[in-house]
Amino acid sequence: MITLDNVTKRYGGQAVVDDVSITFGAEGVTSLIGPNGAGKSTLFALVGRLIAPDAGRVAVDGMDVATTPSAQLAKVLAVLRQDNQVAARLTVQDLVEFGRFPHSRGRLTVVDRDHVERAIGYLDLDPYRQRFLDELSGGQRQRAFIAMVLAQDTEYVLLDEPLNNLDLRHMTEIMRLVRQMADDLGKRVVTVLHDINFAATWSDRIVAMRDGAVVADAAARDIMRPEVLAAVYDTSVDVREIDGRPVALYYG
């Protein structure tokens, strides 16, 4: 499990993550929701050891993120960031092979190649494997990055806003994949999502943040209540039941 004990991160005196203690990363899909600036991405960056907390401790399976060698953590925890701009011209295959770096340090073994092939197959990237990343559509590129994370073969997979800039079809496609990864491959997936309907449809647990603190943490169905969502987003959200599923209406 991923455990945060009284973790605080400040930027210029203001606490972006304020004394948060939480444990997540159970089997299945956990989604982090909350308004802009709630501290979701900062929380991810803390877990992904991109930034160090000002106070508190972050641990993955009991390993303190601050003291455990990065290479060791990379074998249990994979992080996909929001913006993945790559200056060099890489093919999809090159990118997915990078996912094996924690295991092989760049010298691919038979096992590594097998993982790469499976990841490429799993994300239906076979026709594009020799394409350069800048020749792909947004949805294809996102799949390529997810394939890299998958090839990393970690128990925990953190996806920071994987639906950014995707259209309806690709959003659904990615969320379905995320669900499959959890159900078929036993991944413990944690995502940051902005669309609460996507979060509710595909996650087992939803953690809601606001102003650097966790304000709600429950099963998806229990989060999808007007009073809870109103408190999280500070705006009125209507929730209707459609075909037995709660759907939030927030279009005005």
Binding site: S70, L73, R81, V86
Partner: peptide, 21 residues
């Protein structure tokens, strides 16, 4: 050399792949 290849992905991705950036 191989570490440098990973660094082309940028610092966040490199850290995620276990490089002490």
């Amino acid at each position: 050399l191989r570490t440098l290849d990973v660094l082309t992905l940028g610092a966040p991705a490199a850290v995620g792949l276990g490089i002490e950036h």
